[in-house]
Design a protein around this nucleic acid. Structure first.
Length: 226
DNA sequence: GCATAAAAGCCTATTACCTCA
DNA sequence: GTTGAGGTAATAGGCTTTTAT
């Protein structure tokens, strides 16, 4: 599974496979994530309120939550568009540029990847729902069609067999009960042609089916046994 | 070369905090 | 002023891959 990160936008809906380069995590004993970076500039730190005093009296640092500035967010997004993962150098450079700690940049990228994936999953879910709906509709239509054909009760066209000189059906339409596909049995000895009526899956579905078995794919796989 | 432990890096789930209606 | 929902920074734990022995 490969993805070209360079072509991915911030809300890209392709599957992202993370790269394998990032910096080692900074243990909290080495670097307190809530500690203000030296020379802090643009980021906005918010103190949490009442409990802070209790914590600070207990020896712990007051809890603070970082709010990234618009400019920091913009730069991070821009960077994310170029790479979904950062190698240690990139992370270091970005952290320096943003006046953040590398760990914070790393965390931001992790969360950003998670958000991307969530968004993608939601859209895939929507897509599959719609696809299912259209397949159901098509199935209904085809079943109606079959019923109508049966209702006609017209005998199939006959031809003369070259061997027995007896009339026999030119072809017979049958439907597989499990996969509900129409099978045409022709004249030739043992020639059974299966007519595929599957809906052509759009590109997105093709992408999906590479990850999970789509209904069409599963249908195709199951009907292979017919 | 093979086995194994440690390190590194990522993902996922969750928490904690903030903002806003 | 209070409350609940939503957004997001940060944490914890687990898994996979890489590296050193």
């Amino acid at each position: 599974m490969a993805v070209s990160p360079s072509s991915i936008s911030s809300l890209e809906l392709t599957i992202s496979m993370p790269g394998f380069s990032s910096s080692p995590p900074f243990p909290s004993s080495d670097l307190d994530i809530n500690q203000l970076p030296s020379g802090t500039g643009e980021e906005e730190w918010i103190t949490a309120g009442v409990e802070d005093e209790e914590e600070s009296t207990n020896g712990g640092p007051p809890r603070k939550k970082l709010r990234l500035s618009k400019e920091q967010s913009r730069l991070l997004e821009e960077s994310f568009r170029q790479h979904h993962t950062l190698n240690p150098r990139q992370k270091e450079a970005l952290a320096l540029q943003l006046k953040l700690r590398p760990r914070q940049v790393e965390v931001w990228f992790q969360n950003r990847r998670a958000r991307s994936k969530l968004k993608q999953t939601e859209m895939e879910c929507e897509y599959l729902k719609r696809w299912f709906g259209s397949l159901t509709e098509q199935n209904r239509r085809l079943q109606r069609e079959v019923e109508e054909l049966r209702a006609l009760k017209v005998g199939p066209p006959t031809v003369m067999s070259p061997h027995s000189c007896e009339p026999r059906p030119a072809s017979t339409l049958t439907m597989c009960p499990s996969c509900e596909r129409v099978t045409t049995t022709g004249l030739d000895k043992g020639s059974t042609k299966t007519t595929t009526t599957a809906v052509a899956a759009p590109t997105t579905a093709a992408t999906l089916s590479s990850k999970v078995g789509t209904p069409a794919l599963q249908s195709r796989q199951s009907s292979a046994a017919c």
